[in-house]
Design a protein around this nucleic acid. Structure first.
Lengths: 225, 225
DNA sequence: TCAATCGTTAAAATCGAAAATATCAGACAA
DNA sequence: TTGTCTGATATTTTCGATTTTAACGATTGA
């Protein structure tokens, strides 16, 4: 989710294919466990096998696809245990990053947080009306808000790792399909308030509820083995 | 470092090339910032461009090489800030993992820790005598000991992420060349004792000193911008 | 009936060539 | 001198074809 609408047709062919396939996995259009046959994907995405394999190797490195032996690639599968595992790692990273960010954040940071929350809240409101459209944009705003929150943590490494874990978490949320918009929106607002008050302790608690709530919600949807 | 000597000629050509190039980066044989021209590497590693590009894409995904636009690949550069950043992330992950492992570790886990420490300690002793040979094996044992310590943390995701960060940290240690064998060996022993006593608090302190000491040592060597 | 072997087919891994793009040096004009 | 245009060269990106490997079913022998 580290890209915006303007980036769609930028970069090399391989780069574009990478972004397309990646979001297709994240948003379930390539289903968990699905076999990724080269010939088919080649046609679907209009690239050659070599380029395709470069893309799949990158995604394998991110654990979004698995590449076993010489038996090709498939979308990595999902499980309740994996979700819990990812959620707890996200929590560890994000809580720590928030503590750092709340401590070191300046006015620029505050502005980023407020701006990101504004966009996200507007989208959440709009979704309530139009009944769950624009999932992709909505989830990007969600991503951007959480990234903004930790953007003053002072560690690139931490932010990148968090981003990667966040995306894997996100796949499960999308899988659950139905969103718990109201609750999440309230928690987002609380996080914003905590940020402005530099109340890292409360933010940590809210975040724990936010993430664990998401896990429960995803599991309750019952689409995960 | 997630592989052992028996794995050298296993898997596909691409897989083998991946391992070779990766360790060559980790051990400085491919220097930080070095341009990775396809033609040269093709000859050096005896693979075709396509296969090579698959490998480099994977490594780019791990941030061990950078792939900018259509200007090819180069070994990712090093900096004092990056080292500190990596070290602090390693500390966060490893301390947390240790807490979990110390809490949940059973006898099997204890055995793994003791065994791993035994190998590591023997190697550290041997190095003192033979004056710094076998860096690669030594570092693998180091890796294995720390992985063993956290191997009962209950989270695959956490272990994999830690492993990736550890390897980046390791590159800096190798870069510094001279080792601080005695101090590190003592700290390893302390960690073992903490593990057997399930004293996560002390282990955390030792680990902090262990990692920060490594940072200081690497920086003092003065080979990093 | 079952297991093992062999052949056939489908798919993946690997390769080298072709196209696209960047880099660099020299010429020319301001 | 400085800047920029242009062509030549080096390098990367992309492609389709070839080689290798796995998957599957039929055949044979116990």
């Amino acid at each position: 989710m580290a890209r915006n609408a303007a980036t769609i047709d930028e970069g090399t062919i391989g780069e574009r294919a990478y972004r397309r396939i990646r979001t297709d996995i994240l948003f379930g259009r390539l289903a968990p466990g699905e076999k990724l046959k080269l010939e088919r994907l080649k046609d679907d995405y209009g690239v050659s096998v070599s380029t395709l394999r470069e893309v799949l190797n990158r995604l394998a490195s991110e654990k979004l696809v698995v590449a076993e032996g010489q038996r090709g690639f498939e979308v990595s599968s999902v499980s309740a245990d994996d979700l819990k595992d990812i959620a707890s790692l996200r929590l560890l990273l994000e809580v720590h990053a928030i503590e750092q960010a709340f401590h070191g954040g300046d006015m620029e940071w505050e502005a980023r947080v407020v701006a990101a929350h504004h966009k996200l809240a507007a989208m959440e409101e709009r979704r309530r009306a139009s009944n769950g459209a624009d999932s992709e944009v909505w989830k990007r705003y969600d991503w951007e808000f959480h990234q903004a929150l930790i953007s003053a943590c002072g560690s690139r490494e931490l932010m990148e790792t968090h981003g990667a874990v966040f995306d894997k978490y996100l796949r499960y949320q999308v899988l659950a399909l139905t969103d718990r918009g109201d609750i999440a929106a309230r928690e987002h607002r609380q996080l914003l308030e905590c940020a402005l008050k530099r109340d890292a302790a409360t933010a940590g608690k809210v975040l724990r509820a936010h993430i664990n709530g998401g896990v429960e919600h995803a599991l309750a949807a019952g689409k995960i083995a």
